[in-house]
Write a protein that binds this DNA or RNA. Structure first.
Lengths: 285, 285
DNA sequence: TAAATCGTTCATAAAAAGAGAAGATATTGA
DNA sequence: TCAATATCTTCTCTTTTTATGAACGATTTA
């Protein structure tokens, strides 16, 4: 079945005659006769009743006309999707939880307000998964710790971020021995921060009593407040948390490298939507 | 824009590669490449980002995919409309008010119950209009007084019907003089019955004091009950009405010819739906 | 009655779709 | 590392589809 067949058929129904339809569609009437016949053969029903030298729509034809018009209208919508200069598309963004929680919400809201016809699909993932999904083409843009050096990818600094040491307030200047007597709370096994924390522990010769994996920032803070554990967390998260959790203390440590968040996307990506999205996200609030 | 282009595009999106899409659609991959390119040129956007030897859907392509799938699904619905053996169509029926009111309702309900996929459009019209609409192809079937003798039309008796003289009960055996002192109520100007009534008045030498046109049976009955007027109405209507209006009286009159209702439709109508509809309506309740 | 209109058929021309080979690049496997 | 395989694309050529225009029969209009 072809859209042109449907258009021919609808024109005949609307105009009443083949000749008028031919005039409307700038073609010859024999063409219309043939195409409508094809359509009837395809469907197995008579769409018109031929009587003398005129066409009368059959009940079947009337029903088919309703559907045909819907199909044509929807095809027209598809055809016209990109005719105006509005940005339209579906962008898939992946981001580290810390980026999603602390840096992105207001910026995404602003982008959505300025670009209402672009659908954003946003999913939180650990950094290894993000890179994998970006390479597979499942994601258009990721916000992850970087930069990622790869011939196909581009990285650009998004947000400065570093891990800080978070301890109970009662223990304002913890020594290595203090920390070694405590529990360590880490976010997730596949999270990139884990590697940095491990490096820090090794450098500082801290051997925590035990390691607990907790996939929730607020749970980690609650545990630290309880007084028997510590953690290494992104500074932006901690800054927000100290207002709600009074009994925690944090400090920067040189042994914990900076761990900035980068935009990463494909180098040879033709669509301009990605770049506009990045430009929008980069603007100060 | 062609449905085949949309199908090619969607196959590539779903399969991920041109080669896989070609295998699915039983064609050669160069063909797909070309058709997708055409589509991109037509829309003015890149649907895929070409990187190395693979295709990645762009944000625009993702959006277009959603629409394209809808178009294809709806086209498929249209294609499959008549694939089963259920009767489907839109039948337009016109009928005299008397037929619609007294004879048709239960039969139409029964037909609808047996044939749920046939849409019925039913409109009441006076007989001249009915014939006109049937000839114009605006109606598939009419129920009107007949038979209509016409080379293109077929008539078949539907319901026996005749006009009866309806008078106030107080005047059980009205004379010509009685009636000539009264008002006459007639249904509508364009109604076929009007001619019969005029013929009756002339034959019987009745000259009513005045003629009122009232387009409502129940209003006519109310006026007759008031005692100063009479009317000539279809027997089936009157029979129903006497139960509700006690103060009216009716009698058959030879001067009022029978006025039966006929099915009338086009002789050369190929669609079987009309005939099935008539068969259904003809069955006894 | 003559002229115009209508839908259809047919032969033919134009356009589109498809096939298949060849090329450039990238991935896989030995 | 190097050949083998797989990717998409470009090109030419063939087939298929679509459109044209004239002719025809039938009907309607003037």
């Amino acid at each position: 079945m072809k859209l042109s067949q449907l258009a021919f058929f609808c024109a005949v129904v609307e105009q009443g005659t083949v000749a008028a339809a031919a005039a409307q569609l700038n073609c010859v009437s024999s063409n219309i006769t043939t195409r409508v016949r094809e359509l009837e053969d395809l469907l197995g029903v008579s769409l018109f009743s031929r009587e003398k030298n005129r066409l009368l729509v059959t009940p079947e034809g009337r029903l088919f006309y309703q559907k045909a018009k819907q199909v044509l209208a929807m095809a027209q919508e598809a055809r016209a999707l990109f005719k105006d200069d509005a940005e339209r598309g579906v962008i898939r963004v992946g981001a580290l939880d810390v980026a999603l929680t602390n840096h992105l919400p207001e910026r995404i809201a602003r982008y959505r307000a300025n670009t209402p016809h672009v659908e954003l699909h946003i999913r939180p993932e650990p950094s290894l998964m993000l890179e994998q999904l970006l390479m597979d083409g499942e994601l258009d843009l990721i916000l992850t710790d970087g930069p990622i050096i790869h011939p196909l990818l581009v990285s650009r600094l998004a947000f400065r971020e570093r891990l800080v040491l978070v301890t109970p307030k009662a223990l304002s200047a913890p020594t290595v021995d203090d920390l070694s007597r405590m529990e360590l709370y880490v976010f997730g096994q596949t999270c990139h921060y884990r590697r940095q924390v491990d490096g820090y522990l090794e450098t500082s010769k801290i051997k925590p009593r035990s390691v607990m994996e907790i996939e929730s920032f607020s749970s980690i803070f609650a545990c630290i407040e309880a007084g028997v554990g510590f953690s290494c967390l992104p500074e932006s998260v901690v800054e927000q948390a100290v207002t709600r959790h009074g009994k925690i203390h944090f400090e920067r440590t040189d042994s914990l490298e900076s761990s900035d968040i980068y935009y990463v996307w494909r180098k040879n990506y033709t669509s301009p939507l990605i770049h506009r999205l990045i430009e929008s996200l980069e603007q100060e609030l």
